[in-house]
């Protein structure tokens, strides 16, 4: 589904991603871990199409298509979803109106008619139940006045509504208490299917107690320095990132 080949990206001349290689297939959950500043969020932003970064080398193929040539909204309509680390507030814009616009853009892209209001409301109810999110969130303006936890839950709810092929969750666990963490993890697990894939970006291993990844990658200094299965995350939690720092320096 997704192939990242030798990806280099920089911002204002500083290279942040220094040759990333990654392959994600349908039905898989990948975890990308790493210390602060290793390039995790940059990778997420580049995949979503944020234009703050210059891509200096490499390529990204998504379903065989050149992802880097696509506008951010096109990527979204093609099924890429980014769960933001810091979801922004849009005052005065109701969640309902926002999501309806988003869903209908996606439908238009697929050549479908806009959704009827009654069907849309029904879908909202179903998805809310699915990801166990209380309904008052959706009666408010987009993220306005939401607590940190509510914002993250709202991201998962939007993910449910848009039913993406490839979800990238950027530090969705940061700032969550254990109950909120469980709700988010539960949502991700519920939405998993053999047809879609998820990349979970996290600093801590604890989220991976609730979401079992098929593959774990460690991003360090703009490169993936190690890949493995879920045990790698546990090893990392025990030994800390310093262990890797030493190893990479030794190499």
């Amino acid at each position: 589904m997704l192939q990242i080949k030798n990806l280099h990206a920089s911002i204002e001349g500083n290279e942040i991603l220094k040759g990333i290689n990654l392959e994600v297939n349908k039905g898989e959950i990948h975890a990308i871990m790493g210390p602060n500043g290793s390039g995790k969020s940059t990778l997420a932003s580049v995949l979503a199409g944020r234009d703050l970064f210059d891509i200096t080398d490499g390529e990204i193929l998504y379903e065989g298509k050149n992802l880097l040539e696509m506008a951010p909204e096109e990527r979204a309509r093609e099924g890429i979803f980014l769960g933001f680390q810091y979801p922004v507030e849009i005052p005065g814009v109701s969640m309902m109106n926002f999501l309806k616009t988003a869903v209908n853009e996606q439908r238009k892209h697929r050549g479908q008619d806009p959704m009827k209001s009654s069907d849309f409301l029904k879908m909202m109810r179903e998805k809310k139940d699915l990801v166990e999110i209380d309904s008052n969130l959706t009666n408010r303006s987009v993220n306005e006045g939401f607590s940190g936890g509510e914002k993250k839950r709202n991201e998962i709810f939007q993910m449910a509504m848009l039913d993406p092929q490839l979800s990238i969750l950027d530090e969705t666990d940061s700032g969550l208490d254990i109950d909120a963490l469980k709700i988010v993890a539960h949502g991700v697990n519920k939405l998993k299917s053999p047809e879609n894939a998820t990349i979970v970006i996290t600093h801590y291993q604890r989220l991976l107690n609730y979401i079992i990844p098929d593959k774990v990658h460690v991003l360090y200094g703009g490169q993936i320095v190690r890949s493995g299965d879920k045990d790698l995350a546990i090893e990392l939690e025990e030994k800390g990132y310093d262990w890797l720092r030493k190893e990479t320096t030794n190499q």
């Binding site: 909204e73 979204a76 933001f84 922004v88």
Partner: peptide
């Protein structure tokens, strides 16, 4: 950031501005 957030949900720049301004 607001525009990009909308973009990422499949809403293009024009519609994003329409949404944001009308919300305001």
């Amino acid at each position: 950031d607001q525009i990009f957030y909308c973009n990422q949900r499949g809403i293009d720049e024009e519609d994003a501005i329409g949404l944001i301004v009308n919300g305001y």
